[in-house]
Simulated scan of single mutants.
Amino acid sequence: MRILHTSDWHIGRTFHGHATLDALRGVLDALAAQVREHRVDLVLVAGDVFDSSAPPAAAYPLLTDALVAIRDAGARVVVTSGNHDSAARLGFLSPLLREGIHVVTDPATIGEPVTIADAHGPVHVYGIPFLEPALVRHLWPEAAVRSQHDALVLAMERVRADAAARGGRSLAVAHCFAAGVEPTPGLERDIQQGGLDVVALSAFDGPDYVALGHIHGRQQLSERVRYAGAPLHYSFGEGDKPRGSWLVELDAEGLASVEWLALPVPRPLVTLRGAFAELLADPRFTDAEAAWVSAEYTDATPELDAMRRLQERFPWCARVEHAPMRRGADDGRTYAGRVRAARTDAELFDAFLVHVREGEGASESERVLIHEVIADEVIAEVRA
């Protein structure tokens, strides 16, 4: 049996204020084409199908079209809900979809698999929706469910017990932050690393393969426990992460192989750093003119209307940051201390510039201008 593991579609999410629906539609069309090309039998979508509990209206037809395209390509589908989804809204779709598309959102059904057969017998697929401890502890009244770790441990106990009773091969699909993950800053807004939301890898013992969602970059925690990541880049922190899914093959004994299938990147992400004039004119940045751009300019002083000016060269510039390269020597004084120590108006100006420009005081040309302004003010006062 061939299984395609994907996750974190985040339908409806924006990228620095720009809509991503059209780009995501193209990527999911490519995923459906891979299903047909590689004769995939089953697609697992491990949570965060939508980006919010109340997605925009256009998100629903995109999801329906994607699932139907995968089904038409020959695969069955098992979808679970993530922390960004509304389980109720996502679950509402389940009875409306065609045969072969299964949406698992009810924690009460944990341990009840979707069973699919191949030439070697049954494969039991256990979908585990995102488990918010406060909302699922009633399922295990005999246990103390204080964290996601606690909830996943109990959920997987149900999975293992049912799989042992049924026999055959099994898969699990879950949405969580598992121990051993190396998150990239900005990839997932709800991760709490180092706290009670970390699920021990041992919790996932048992199934032949565990398809995880929640992390937006692909990661392999063990041969049989992996994250596929998101199919689209949703932040500049993800710019160097490949996009795609895992193609998993089961034989009669269990896990036989896992292969990465890359997906197309509609528009690459680049971070440019340099002086503002260089960003506007340097030929070495030519390749970035068709990319999403995060620009960091290193000039000592901020530029006026920086975004508009950069977008004249980089139409897809989405982020601009003033990141001065040079810093003045730190004398240990506070701004108030520098003001008290100033003996002239020119020194007051300089103290202010040092404070707002990360230690960079007035340049020689600025000192000349400051002295001219002060002199003009003095002359005006004398005349008055």
Rank of each mutant, 00 (worst) to 15 (best):
V49C: 01
G194V: 07
A341Y: 06
M1A: 06
V159D: 00
G195M: 07
G186A: 14
F130K: 02
H138V: 07
H124C: 11
A295C: 11
L187P: 07
S202K: 05
R273A: 09
D41P: 07
L152P: 00
A288R: 09
L131Y: 01
A33Q: 14
E364M: 13
F236N: 08
L171T: 04
V136R: 00
H10S: 11
R313K: 13
R326I: 12
T20S: 08
A342G: 05
A69M: 10
A174T: 03
E377T: 12
E238A: 07
H124E: 12
A179D: 15
V210Q: 01
A119Y: 06
A288P: 05
A178G: 04
D8P: 02
L28P: 01
I215H: 03
V45N: 02
I215L: 15
F276T: 01
H149G: 07
A23C: 11
A161G: 11
V199A: 05
V181I: 15
G47C: 01
G121N: 03
T271A: 00
S81Q: 06
S257M: 00
V79H: 06
V125S: 07
I3D: 06
S245E: 06
A73W: 02
L212H: 03
P141E: 08
G237Y: 02
R25K: 14
R76H: 13
E188D: 15
H371M: 10
A155Q: 00
V356F: 04
G17K: 05
R2V: 08
S363A: 13
P113G: 07
R326K: 13
R189L: 12
R313Q: 13
A318E: 07
E303G: 09
A318F: 02
A203P: 03
L139G: 01
A134S: 15
F352G: 03
G127F: 06
L135M: 13
Q311G: 13
A33N: 11
T271K: 04
Q192W: 04
P95T: 08
E347M: 02
V373D: 08
A295V: 09
M1V: 04
D197N: 11
V198L: 11
